[in-house]
């Protein structure tokens, strides 16, 4: 019978980031789909109903929450605790390279070997880092569309995307990455929770994980 030890893993700020990120992504996907292809229509005029304006308001609010989450994550990548810093997941140390391959083998059901590790496994960490980069593109294209007349955003957006339409197009395409990511992320969390009683799911609420003694 294995014994487990409760260990502090995620800071309050990290958990705040996670839930800001998760909830804003869900909100942005739903309202974003509405804004791109509004599925309601009406011929009523002069009523106090503003479905598109309302959807956009919710969308922009969620967009700011999303941008705030990314600012928090940037801070944590540099100044967070050991598990939260970017060095913990970059495959540049022998420990991390080994973990990357052992995780792939384990996820492919080839090996049963589970390395005890408090933070992200390296495969997950790299996926999060990639998503973080995609998120930065979303923020740039988002503010490029929201503030088209502001010289700063116009300069960055024009340099990166060429014109508004291409910014919008990539903004839309990259959204599908977040939807795929969410699907895989939730699945693998459940999968890991089933395989190892480390409390991976509850850790994002409580901040604590349980590791083999």
């Amino acid at each position: 019978m294995a014994t487990y030890e409760k260990k502090k893993c995620w800071s309050v700020l990290f958990r705040l980031f996670h839930w800001m990120y998760a909830l804003s992504i869900v909100t942005l996907c739903i309202t974003g789909f509405y804004i791109n292809g509004p599925w309601t229509n009406t011929m009523i005029e002069g009523s106090a109903s503003f479905p598109m304006a309302f959807a956009r308001f919710i969308y922009f609010t969620a967009g700011y929450v999303f941008a705030g989450a990314i600012i928090i994550r940037t801070f944590l990548y540099i100044f967070g605790n050991k598990q939260e810093r970017v060095w913990d997941i970059l495959p540049i140390t022998p420990r991390n390279i080994k973990n990357l391959f052992s995780t792939i083998l384990r996820y492919a059901y080839i090996s049963e070997n589970h390395e005890v590790r408090l933070g992200h496994n390296v495969l997950a960490g790299l996926t999060y880092l990639f998503t973080f980069v995609v998120a930065i593109f979303m923020i740039i294209s988002g503010f490029f569309m929201l503030f088209p007349e502001v010289a700063t955003w116009q300069g960055i957006g024009t340099a990166v995307f060429g014109n508004q339409q291409w910014g919008r197009y990539l903004h839309h395409l990259l959204m599908w990455w977040f939807m795929m990511f969410a699907l895989i992320h939730v699945y693998l969390c459940i999968w890991n929770d089933v395989k190892e009683p480390e409390g991976i799911i509850s850790s994002i609420f409580t901040g604590d994980k349980f590791l083999h003694k």
Binding site: P38, T40, S49, N163
Partner: peptide, 30 residues
């Protein structure tokens, strides 16, 4: 646009009413 009145296809009633052309591909926002 803001009040959610859109032309669904050219020539429909919403088009005759002069509603927003967003859904039929107007590139005004870009």
């Amino acid at each position: 646009f803001d009040e959610g009145r859109f032309v669904e296809q050219f020539g429909d009633e919403a088009h005759q009413m002069g509603y927003c052309l967003y859904k039929v591909g107007c590139k005004g926002p870009e």
